[in-house]
Amino acid sequence: MSWFSGQAAAVWLLAFGQTLTYAGVYYAFPALLPDLQAATGWSVAELAFGPTLGFLVMAALTPFTGRWVDRGWGGEMLTYAPILAAVGVAGLGLAGSPLIWWAIWAVLGVAQACCLYESCFAFLTRRLGAEARGAITKVTLVAGFAGTLAFPLGDVLGRSLGGPGALIAFAGLMLLAVPINAHAVRSLRRMERAGGIAAEATPGVLRQAMRRPAFWAIAAVFGMIWLNHGILLTYVLMLFADRGAAAGMATLAAACIGPSQVLGRLVLLFQGARIGNARATVWSLVGVVCASVALLSAGWWPLLIFAFAALQGAGAGLLSILRPMLIVDILGRRGFGTISGAVAVAPILASAAAPSVGAGLLHLGGPELIYGFCLALGLGGLAIGIGLLRRG
């Protein structure tokens, strides 16, 4: 697929749409957490339960959205769900109580299930087949800058508008994704009609996949890594401050996570044929483990937070691409949307639990407990991943 063909142009458009959506619905909360706490007076646990609830709803719906993609509805979800997401983020800025905050996050869970990576990747895999890895990599190359956009923008908007006002501004930014996604979907569907790709009926395919230990091993690996990543990302500014970093240094390091994701994905894009999915997965898991070691060691040398940002960003960023590819390699392409949606329940539940688990760890043992817990998660994911890939 040429980088500048009509098909590639549609893929790049989806990439920009994902960047805007992720910046508002995923990264705005950690970027604005200190401002939101100051503006509302609510506890970290009360604020964090909102994203947790959103991810729980997302986890419940993702197996269904995978089936909807298999039946040909992926384009509708990518086109219209960002509208619901933008309205929800704006509503968060107007929430007057924790109860309303939580209710809006539940609605955002519906939007996230329909328009974030899972649905986008399933849509592209169904449409492009063997070319999907290159397309998915391109999407994540651009969308990897969502955090880079959100953290500095959140710092500026939080200072000038306060946390709630900044959320409304993020919502306006997210609306730009709607026409971008709509044009990309129309372009890909014109090619789809020309290619004669039909909706796929996959009765029983999920039951067959779930009988295989590899299904549960993949779910376990990505569940553990996404719990690790979710905790560290949610509390990244607090953890960097605990390691002795000044506010500006902490914001800069957090903003480096996105470019690190992009750098790792560029390596995969240009060297993927030589590296292979299995080897890239192992090295990505090693990177996540080394990131936790760097963060733990930053108490002696705060500049190591930049090493953490580089390793965590590259490791988690590569794994977000490799999960759909591993599912295809190990479990097959038939019924991919359905199987991928079911596997995704584990990492989505982990992301749901991450803010609340992190708040609990902070309460029980402070930042040191988070460092040790996240290192243990990385080591566990690495061990299971090596065992899975050795068995083929």
Rank of each mutant, 00 (worst) to 15 (best):
Met1Gln: 03
Trp3Pro: 14
Gly6Ile: 10
Phe16Ile: 12
Thr19Ala: 15
Pro30Thr: 03
Pro30Ser: 13
Ala31Val: 00
Leu33Asp: 00
Leu33Val: 01
Asp35Asn: 13
Ala38Trp: 02
Thr40Phe: 11
Thr40Tyr: 05
Gly41Phe: 04
Ser43Pro: 10
Val44Met: 07
Leu53Lys: 06
Val57Lys: 00
Leu61Thr: 04
Leu61Met: 10
Phe64Asp: 02
Arg67Phe: 07
Val69Pro: 07
Asp70Ile: 00
Trp73Ser: 15
Met77Lys: 00
Pro82Phe: 03
Val87Asp: 10
Ala90Trp: 01
Gly93Asn: 10
Pro98His: 09
Val107Ser: 09
Leu108Tyr: 05
Ala111His: 12
Cys114Gln: 06
Leu116Gly: 09
Tyr117Val: 05
Ser119Val: 15
Phe123Asn: 05
Arg127Ala: 13
Leu128Gly: 03
Glu131Thr: 11
Thr137Phe: 02
Ala146Cys: 03
Thr148Asp: 12
Phe151His: 03
Pro152Phe: 02
Pro152Met: 02
Asp155Gln: 13
Leu157Tyr: 11
Gly158Ile: 02
Gly158Lys: 09
Gly162Leu: 11
Ile168Pro: 02
Ile168Gly: 11
Ala171Glu: 11
Met174Ser: 04
Pro179Arg: 06
His183Tyr: 14
Arg189Val: 11
Arg190Trp: 00
Ile197Gly: 14
Met210Pro: 04
Ala219Phe: 07
Val221Lys: 06
Phe222Pro: 13
Ile225Val: 10
Ile225Asp: 14
Trp226Pro: 14
Trp226Asp: 15
Asn228Arg: 05
Gly230Tyr: 00
Leu233His: 09
Tyr235Thr: 13
Asp242Ile: 01
Arg243His: 09
Ala245Arg: 06
Ala247Pro: 15
Ala247Asn: 08
Met249Cys: 09
Met249Ser: 14
Ala250Cys: 07
Leu252Asn: 04
Ala254Pro: 15
Ala255Ile: 08
Pro259Phe: 06
Ser260Pro: 11
Val267Gly: 13
Leu269Asp: 13
Gln271Met: 14
Arg274Asn: 05
Ala278Asn: 05
Ala278Glu: 13
Val288Lys: 00
Val289Asp: 06
Cys290Pro: 06
Val293Leu: 13
Leu295Gly: 10
Leu296Met: 05
Ser297Arg: 06
Ala298Gln: 02
Gly299Val: 03
Trp300Gly: 15
Pro302Asn: 02
Leu304Arg: 04
Ile305Thr: 12
Phe306Trp: 07
Ile327Gly: 08
Val328Trp: 12
Gly332Gln: 13
Phe336Lys: 01
Gly337Gln: 08
Thr338Val: 01
Ile339Arg: 12
Gly341Asn: 04
Ala344Pro: 07
Ser351Cys: 09
Ser351Leu: 12
Ser356Cys: 08
Gly360Cys: 08
Leu361Thr: 09
Gly365Arg: 04
Ile370Gly: 03
Gly372Trp: 00
Gly372Asn: 09
Phe373Tyr: 01
Gly378Leu: 03
Gly381Asp: 06
Ala383Tyr: 00
Ile384Pro: 14
Gly392Ser: 11
